[in-house]
């Protein structure tokens, strides 16, 4: 699999994904050169606390992007509470207050679909544990646009619906444990994955 082209990592997760996300963040080194975009289901009315909880484990600061913020290398971005996070042409973020998608705002489908349109074959979409089908259509867009699709192995997920839903409707390139996902992410910039 040609991974030298991968320049963006986009991760979606919901119920049961927190442990996996923090484990991934704890292994990403301070000088990691790619942007990592996280779209995780979270409480809509709670704006503070989640970033801090993730930062406890992360070597890099977590940024909740403002609207129109540029996407930069070596940053970790988290979809803000109660907004959809969309990637715009020109590598900027756009936020929206569209209705919930799959009962969710932020919706993983919208982040994956917009990322796939903009990043095309330069992205890897990673779907972690979750209890609904959000993100499955987005993963299909990632695949259609030439990106790499990875799901957390459902057998180790606390909630397996999300990765299984993605697997049902699109071609998945890799079914990995969290440890394998970490290895993959760490090797991408050095063309070794």
């Amino acid at each position: 699999m040609a991974v030298q082209r991968i320049k963006y990592i986009v991760i979606g997760g919901s119920a049961g994904s927190f442990r996996g996300v923090t484990k991934i963040l704890s292994k990403i080194p301070k000088d990691y050169p790619l942007p990592v975009i996280l779209c995780l289901h979270r409480l809509k009315h709670v704006r503070s606390g989640f970033v801090e909880a993730l930062e406890l484990k992360s070597n890099l600061p977590i940024v909740e992007p403002s609207d129109k913020m540029n996407i930069q290398k070596g940053k970790i971005y988290l979809a803000p509470a109660n907004y959809h996070l969309i990637v715009e042409l020109g590598n900027t973020f756009a936020l929206s207050t569209f209705d919930n998608v799959n009962h969710s705002r932020p919706a993983i489908d919208l982040t994956f679909e917009s990322s796939a349109r903009v990043f095309r074959n330069k992205m890897a979409g990673i779907m972690l544990s979750g209890a609904n089908k959000d993100g499955a259509k987005g993963m299909r867009s990632v695949h259609i646009n030439g990106g790499i699709t990875i799901i957390q192995n459902p057998s180790e997920c606390q909630a397996r619906t999300m990765p299984e839903a993605a697997n049902k409707i699109t071609k998945i390139d890799h079914v990995y444990s969290v440890d394998q996902i970490i290895n993959y992410i760490l090797k991408i910039p050095y063309n070794e994955a």
């Binding site: 969309i86 990637v87 715009e88 042409l89 756009a94 929206s96 569209f98 209705d99 917009s114």
Partner: peptide, 12 residues
């Protein structure tokens, strides 16, 4: 208008 949002809106 921001293109992604307006495009999404038109789709809806």
């Amino acid at each position: 208008h921001a293109m992604s949002s307006l495009r999404q809106h038109l789709l809806i």
